[in-house]
Design a protein around this nucleic acid. Structure first.
Lengths: 255, 255
DNA sequence: CCAAAAGTGTTGCCTTTACACCCATGT
DNA sequence: ACATGGGTGTAAAGGCAACACTTTTGG
């Protein structure tokens, strides 16, 4: 049960954060979404410096780090129960000596935020349309960026993002994907675009269909997609039970 | 360059550790070795309580976490330049409330070591014969345990070990193994035993040989192994350049 | 000379890959 | 009608698993 978790505003985080959060330890989330046949990442722009970064945060002293990741995800996206995966802890000695996002930090005298930080990286995949990106009191805005057009981020966040993407790609061969990235129902070409986008590679339409269907995690709906040009594609949805089983047991996709 | 790294003895770690180490953050190493056709793990027994644990330690305030892992590995095994892989950070809120290895901790009043700890797990694979297990001033002994006969360990170390083994197995499909687990030269059956032991699964002798050779990372020596019963097997060694390339680029083993 | 272990090759199956044809729809 | 995208099938290739025979050595 959360006990010591006040909502720290403004300068309070700087002055009082060390009372409630674990020092030296932070957490960064790479939140992937899928829209317009493009892989997107949710980024945050800091006030004052207007620099961009991964959404991140700190871990309450009585909080499981996975819960902290979920909390941070919830606060930026409004989403619960997201597929979340820890992929690496980054602990170079000089990590925080780069430039911060907050001007206040750069200019104020030494606080707990000036100390060295080890950060634990998580990635998540979310359904684009369900997300209402939410900046907090420290951030100017929070918005989706195309994976191919990521700006220069603070600290080592560009590298962390790269590592997250690599982890996501490796994950693709062992576990199904799509449940949280696509709408409830979707077409086979849409699912293929998702795979092609994440892998950054063209796939054969027919072989892809065969492979995916052989995983036995999809259900074909009765009606086809309406209001589209050309031949109407079938709609599919994930079979919840089978999808969950595949998530646990793993699959052999081999792409 | 290391600046603030005194060698803390006895009670000093308890009283002064917080001055030099990052608080709340520890590191545990699962050190795998291979001997007698068995996978071994190096474990440490604490003084006083005589309880067993994974070798671990803390991270100096100016130290890269990977360097800390290497330092801990060096201190327990005497080995440099070991293949080391970070596999997970464990951060349940109540991690340290289980029983400690040091009686001194349990009985002394609250110190930095009583606080909650997040621990970062690494695994390493080392050449069994090169290792001289070295206990430190806190430990009664340091010795190899068969993977199938691991005792009850302190805290959540049994779970961490399980996770390390799972990570090692997954790693086997994407990267070569053996360089640090086998002697300089070895026979094909020996290498196969290694794979079988790690995977805990029987493999076909002939198919294994074909697959391994197709990776193009081995060099066959001119002479065969001498002084063995039955037909003398060929000796092999790893082709250093090709092995390193395979480590970087990955392989497709698929077992 | 026999048992046990090691070297080598072959076959068939099954997965993957490449590719062709037909169908539906909006322009 | 036709261009475009979607649904389905098939043949060739390649990888993998199952398996048999020969060679060598110690006892």
């Amino acid at each position: 049960m959360p006990k010591n978790r006040p909502n720290l505003k403004d300068g309070q985080l700087l002055r009082k954060g060390h009372l409630y959060f674990m020092p030296h330890l932070s957490l960064d989330c790479v939140i992937f979404g899928f829209h317009d046949n493009q892989l997107k990442v949710l980024l945050l722009q800091w006030k004052d410096t207007l620099r961009w970064s991964l959404p991140g945060g700190f871990i309450y002293k009585d909080e499981h780090i996975d819960d902290a990741a979920n909390r941070i995800l919830l606060s930026r996206t409004g989403l619960h129960d997201i597929f979340l995966r820890q992929f690496h802890a980054f602990g170079e000695a000089g990590r925080v000596e780069g430039q911060h996002g907050l001007k206040e930090i750069s200019t104020s005298k030494k606080t707990w935020l000036h100390e060295r930080f080890v950060t634990i990286g998580y990635w998540a995949i979310v359904e684009f349309h369900n997300v209402m990106p939410a900046p907090d009191e420290f951030s100017e805005q929070c918005k989706w960026w195309d994976i191919h057009r990521i700006p220069k981020l603070i600290l080592d966040h560009n590298m962390i993002l790269e590592r997250a993407l690599a982890s996501l790609r490796r994950n693709l061969n062992d576990y199904p994907i799509g449940k949280n990235l696509l709408p409830k129902t979707f077409t086979m070409p849409e699912l293929q675009r998702l795979y092609e986008t994440v892998l950054d590679k063209k796939l054969d339409r027919r072989n892809f269909q065969k492979k995916i269907l052989s995983l036995d995690i999809l259900q074909r709906m009765k009606q086809r997609k309406t209001g589209v040009a050309h031949k109407a594609p079938f709609l599919y949805k994930f079979d919840e039970k089978k999808y969950q089983r595949a998530l646990k047991q793993g699959i052999k996709f081999g792409i």
